[in-house]
Computed example of a mutant assay.
Amino acid sequence: MIQDISPKKLLNSYSNKSVNANSLIVIFKNKKIMLRMNTDNKTIVFPTAKELGINQNYTYLFSIDNEDFFFVDVSDVLIPNYYDFYDMRELRKEYFYPKHYIFAAYTAYHLMDWYETTKYCGRCGAINENSLKERARVCPSCGNIVYPRINPAVIVGIINGDKLLLTKYRTGFTYNALVAGFTEIGESLEETVKREVQEETGLRVKNIRYYKSQPWGIACDILMGFFCDVEGDDIIKMDKEELKYAQWVPRKQIELQPLEYSLTNEMMKVFKEDLV
């Protein structure tokens, strides 16, 4: 999955690190990320503080091993002409290397989105400041503290004997997927599984068991994967507003997504290979 960057490790604890010449800088414009991309050898490069200037208003994001990543507003720097801005979806069209830079881009997107949407205090409207003690935004007027937002969501592999229920969204992502949805206020994760399955397919499920989780920075999510078994009637009543396809697919006939980045794809793969 996209976060599987071993032996490298993400270090995301709050720090008041200072930028240095070799620090990697993350810049977004209109939700596109600035990179130098080589489509021939499939590599991407982040700009360094040395290229953009040390004396900028950089914000520390995280480190991966000994590489430190900082964020700066696009309006604060002069962009070298050998860098360009890329839609985040372009990073998922094929494999680009080093792999941990792809994960860094997604994680940085999550934090960048939070910094931008919390510029102003949601309680009194004052301009927030960065906490000097933790990853948080603090309102200097009313004292309101805001922490990074993470949206809980479930991915559901519904099993019917030797078949798995595959879906395709009506718009957007075109490859096979699984039933998925966000947890609502007051719900447990297991209740979210039951509700989302019922809403999207009309099915009832039992034997809900946790599989694995995945951070998904492009949507500010933490995805939690569950397998379960269909209960009773297995006739699918598809939600046509959300899905364009929902079918029981035999194990050996499952078509996987082209890249092994997503929790959804891994869940389809382990079922296809009879590992669950």
Rank of each mutant, 00 (worst) to 15 (best):
I2P: 01
D4G: 09
I5W: 00
S6Q: 11
L10A: 05
S13K: 09
S13G: 04
N16S: 12
K17R: 13
N20I: 12
K29G: 09
K32W: 04
L35M: 14
R36K: 15
M37S: 08
T39Y: 14
N41A: 07
K42M: 09
T43L: 03
F46Q: 01
F46A: 02
F46M: 05
T48I: 01
E51S: 14
Y58R: 02
T59Y: 07
Y60P: 09
F62Q: 00
S63Q: 11
S63F: 06
I64S: 01
F71N: 15
F71C: 15
F71Y: 15
D76S: 09
L78D: 14
I79R: 06
N81Q: 13
F85C: 05
F85E: 04
D87W: 13
M88E: 10
E90L: 12
Y95C: 05
P98K: 02
A105D: 01
L111D: 01
D113A: 11
T118G: 00
C124V: 11
R135A: 06
V138H: 07
V138E: 09
C139Y: 01
Y147W: 08
I150Y: 06
G172K: 07
F173Y: 15
Y175V: 00
Y175S: 05
E184I: 13
G186A: 07
G186F: 06
G186Y: 10
S188T: 15
E190S: 15
E190H: 15
R195Y: 10
E196G: 05
E199I: 11
E200K: 13
G202Q: 06
L203P: 03
L203R: 05
Y210I: 05
Y211E: 12
K212E: 15
P215F: 11
A219M: 13
M224R: 07
F227G: 08
G232A: 08
K237L: 11
K244S: 08
Y245L: 10
W248L: 04
E255A: 08
Q257H: 10
L259M: 13
K269W: 11
L275K: 12
L275G: 00
